[in-house]
Simulated assay, not measured.
Amino acid sequence: MSTTRIAVLIGSLRADSLNRKLALALAGLAPQDVHFEHLRIDDLPLYNQDHEGNPPESVKRLKAGIAAAQGVLFVTPEYNRSIPGVLKNAIDHASRPYGQSAWAGKPAGVIGISGGAIGTALAQQHLRNILSYLDMPTLGQPEAFIQSKEGLLDDQGRIGVDATRQFLQGWVDRYLAWVRKHAQA
């Protein structure tokens, strides 16, 4: 049985990130033949086109992680009604130089959690616009705008609310089917 590799980009650097906890919970809902690899983005320098010819090791590592994966999962908070700068920076690095984007053709999933009533709806919409330009087929349904509540997620990725667990299980199942449908050989 071959392993399906999913590159995970978490748009929060916070040690106690709700989105990191959500990413762990999603991985826990996947079958044994799926490996979720959290790609590091906290050490990427700010994108500068002058460095494209000789990118730093952190950028090479990011692009290699994306290339090795059959799909990409973006787990993002919402900052000021959009995606965090650290996530946009990672997206820009891996899309360059022009014609050498690591993103092209990679099936994507977008999800996020926040304390607000609309979850990360606006950040997800902005991210979907970017992913469309990058030629990433992105799962459209079901959408998942998760509002954090006390006891919803713990540090080990356990989901404390049965209805949320069932919803997220359905989301993971649909996302993995999407990846398998669109993954490049």
Rank of each mutant, 00 (worst) to 15 (best):
P84R: 06
W171E: 01
G157C: 08
E52Y: 07
L24C: 09
Q124D: 03
L9V: 11
A90G: 12
L18G: 11
L134I: 00
F36G: 06
R96A: 06
L18V: 02
I113K: 05
R40A: 09
G160A: 08
D33T: 09
G65M: 05
L22V: 04
R96C: 04
V34C: 10
L24I: 06
A104I: 15
Q169L: 15
D16L: 14
Q147C: 01
P142S: 02
T76R: 02
G65W: 06
G160T: 05
L24A: 15
R14H: 15
V172L: 01
P142F: 03
I41G: 09
Q156M: 09
G65C: 06
G99H: 10
Y175L: 11
A108G: 10
G170R: 06
P55Q: 02
L152V: 11
K88T: 08
H182I: 00
T164N: 10
G151E: 15
D155L: 13
K88R: 12
A27Q: 14
G99Y: 04
W171N: 03
P56A: 07
G65T: 06
Q156N: 14
R61C: 07
K149R: 08
G11E: 11
I41E: 04
R14D: 07
W103Y: 13
V34D: 03
R61M: 10
V161G: 07
A94W: 10
P31F: 12
V72C: 02
F36N: 05
S95H: 08
Q70I: 01
T164V: 12
F36Q: 07
R61I: 11
Y47F: 13
R14L: 08
Y79G: 02
G53M: 03
P142K: 07
R14K: 15
R180Y: 03
R20D: 12
G151Y: 07
R5A: 02
S58M: 08
A94M: 07
W103V: 09
G112I: 12
P55R: 09
L122K: 00
P77D: 13
G115E: 08
E78C: 10
G85Y: 09
L122W: 04
Y79N: 12
Q184D: 08
G65N: 08
Q100S: 11
T76I: 13
P84M: 04
D162F: 05
D173T: 06
I159S: 04
D50W: 13
R165E: 14
L44K: 05
Q124R: 00
V179R: 03
Q70E: 04
N48Y: 13
H182C: 06
P56Y: 02
A102N: 12
N129H: 03
L9E: 10
Q32D: 06
R96Q: 10
I130N: 07
I111S: 01
W171R: 05
H93E: 04
Y175W: 15
G151K: 14
R40Q: 15
A94V: 05
L152Q: 10
A177S: 12
H182F: 15
Q49W: 09
A15H: 15
V172F: 03
Q124Y: 00
